[in-house]
Design a protein around this nucleic acid. Structure first.
Lengths: 216, 216
DNA sequence: AATAGGCGGAGAGATTCTCTCCGCTTAGTG
DNA sequence: CACTAAGCGGAGAGAATCTCTCCGCCTATT
């Protein structure tokens, strides 16, 4: 693959990540094109349809996520610090996008299951490590962690996004949230720990129409 | 105003709140109409244009928010519990919507400034109370609190929304996050406390085009 | 029972989105 | 340096969506 083609591909994926994050998985591909600063033809040549783009984006992100988890595990001896390092990296990767589009827009084929399992395993190792070391409360689950990342990595709505142009606020708020996950418990959070499986289950069925309201 | 008209109005405002929250302030009014289960004419009769709808929604939400803050203050003797009660109420009100649309879509006239000041004052009282009582870390500001509420009260993207159909997860995660704001500090969060004024400033200018990327 | 105000649906006109064709540009190769 | 094949952006057709209005039926209120 030619160098400029690879560069275009990267720009499109990055743009798609942001756009889907901001406007949801149904965002016009037109918006992706504009954000990426490429011509429409370039997108459609590389990704024949929306599904192909989404799939490429998701597998790309999951792979990078797995790599980040492994890196964090290697780089930090203390399990809590490792988890923390990973969570910050995940925020930088805009992990939320992977999850959100993964969820309804795609039929989960074997390849996707495999790459997803890889990511989950790597992150679980971090989570369990921190818990076994007694640094993380026992009543939080993978799902809580994932949702924390999803919420944190979404860009702020509207003009608020400008507040975090350099991405430092995300990290501040992640730290605050992590402090809540650490053992130090005043009352403990309401409800039971949320597992990853429940998240997947919610994601399983292709996003039922959300207009709902009063149908028939 | 006739009873059914009042009911329609309420349904439209509720629907608009959800739709703007999910799809951003540029969401088609068509979608609001569908969600509300009313005819298009009903919306346009009540709110001549998008601006009128947004304005009504924002003032309505800010008023309810102020009421919630006062109620929390009265209902709980302990300042930290009062703050906590308020934050949960704010999440139920989908406070995020008020902020987001307030921010770029509207010219802030005097009425809006007044009602906003009312809300800010009420919430500040809660925050300062909890801090003076030594129950809340001193290095968090109004902006942090507001952004916490904004993040927490947004519906989860895509199919994840189904996870929290009954709204209980929001409260769990708010509790976790609040625990992070409480004094118990392992390291303290990165960065300086975020004030409310900075949030307003970010919001001040009407949402510059976000497509950006490579212009000129 | 009368009536004024309210309601939803159909649809015109404008806008936006998807996707393709085509002539120019650029990266890799000998 | 020249050649060539791959890549690129823009213009634009056709489809889809969105905004907003007219109109005939319905239903609170007196």
């Amino acid at each position: 693959m030619r160098a400029d083609a690879e560069r275009s591909r990267r720009r499109i994926l990055d743009a798609a990540c942001e756009v889907f994050l901001e406007r949801g998985p149904d965002a016009p591909l037109d918006a992706v094109v504009r954000r990426a600063g490429v011509g429409p033809a370039t997108l459609y040549r590389r990704f024949p349809d929306r599904e192909a783009l989404v799939r490429a984006l998701v597998t790309d992100l999951l792979a990078r996520l797995t790599a980040a988890a492994d890196e964090a595990r290697r780089a930090e001896a203390d399990p809590y610090r490792a988890l923390r390092r990973f969570v910050h990296a995940a925020a930088d990767l805009r992990m939320g996008a992977a999850i959100v589009v993964l969820l309804d827009e795609l039929v989960v084929d074997d390849e996707l299951v495999a790459v997803r399992r890889g990511a989950v395993t790597a992150v679980e190792a971090l989570l369990c490590g921190a818990q076994e070391a007694g640094r993380l409360r026992a009543d939080v689950g993978m799902g809580d962690l994932v949702l924390l990342c999803v919420r944190a990595s979404r860009p702020l709505p509207g003009g608020l996004a400008a507040l975090d142009a350099d991405g430092s606020l995300v990290h501040r708020h992640l730290d605050l949230a992590l402090a809540g996950l650490a053992v130090a418990d005043p009352d403990g959070p309401a409800g039971a720990p949320l597992g990853f499986d429940e998240v997947i289950a919610a994601a399983g069925r292709p996003g039922e129409p959300v207009d709902g309201g009063v149908e028939a």
